[in-house]
Write a protein that binds this DNA or RNA. Structure first.
Lengths: 149, 149
DNA sequence: ATATAAATGAAAAGCATTTTCAATAAAAGA
DNA sequence: TCTTTTATTGAAAATGCTTTTCATTTATAT
């Protein structure tokens, strides 16, 4: 678990950007957080540890991480961007539960392959894709009607 | 091409809602518009024909159409909701060109099937899904670097 | 140490979406 | 047709997240 910092270092260096203790702390917390955090989530986590770090800095740091490829920005269509870091889990799709809001990460290689083929059939050169399947998760099904956790 | 109005009529009726000339005009324009319009797009189209219809009414009408299933709200992650009407083309995925912004509607039954299976494998009860493949379209590939249309 | 340019944080601005509210108008009944 | 009831409308304001501004601070190079 050192590579992630190197990636950021290289990126900062190559762009003439600087190391700051704020960035270090934000990155530490982000990388140690399992997964999909909104800016607000992350700001709260950071704020708990360091009251002097502002929302704006978290925002800018996340953009930095996204730009250098350490973070992935995801959008479930609820008007809030979420971020997930890219270590351990490479590409994956999401099963999003409409009841409890939780999501499961999944991959099915055959689907990946077919997507590539589908793109090719249309002369399309794919660079990325996003698949969200919405529904009700196992837990919420067995719990019947309501619930929120 | 009469069924779409019936759907709306039924919906309005079942909910005790009313027919208004504003709704009629907005629905007419929306249904005659081939495809993916933002609220702003649609408002402009409506405004051209009737200066008295406000943005809010367009907004509310589109929510109505989405609720009664005539319209599909789509989100390409650029912070703007778009709407497409559901006649002619049922469910489909999107190939989104990152260069010219155009999108192609596609379906591959095998992918659909595999998605269902994938969900099932996780005890997940799927209700909808969204697949966007991002990349460069045929046209933009052959045109080389720049371009916007 | 000093200079210089990036980074920070608070506050303000942007922007699409959503709500508020007084005025208007559709549907139903008299 | 006239009234009544209640949904609808449109302008403006509010929301909520994201992004920018700007004066100040601070990391690096000299």
């Amino acid at each position: 678990m050192r590579k992630e910092y190197e990636v950021l270092d290289d990126f900062l260096h190559s762009k003439g950007l600087r190391h700051t203790h704020q960035r270090k702390k934000i990155v530490d917390i982000f990388l140690s957080t399992e997964k999909h955090v909104s800016l607000d989530d992350l700001f709260k986590l950071v704020h708990k540890e360091d009251r002097t770090i502002g929302y704006t800095t978290v925002y800018r740091t996340m953009r930095l991480l996204t730009d250098c490829g350490l973070s992935n920005e995801i959008d479930f269509g609820d008007g809030v961007s979420r971020f997930e870091h890219k270590f351990g889990h490479e590409h994956h799709d999401h099963l999003v539960c409409m009841k409890c809001g939780r999501f499961i990460e999944v991959v099915k290689q055959k689907i990946e392959d077919l997507q590539g083929r589908l793109a090719k059939e249309h002369g399309f050169l794919p660079t990325a894709h996003r698949l969200h399947i919405f529904g009700i998760c196992k837990r919420c099904q067995s719990r019947g009607a309501s619930s929120k956790g």
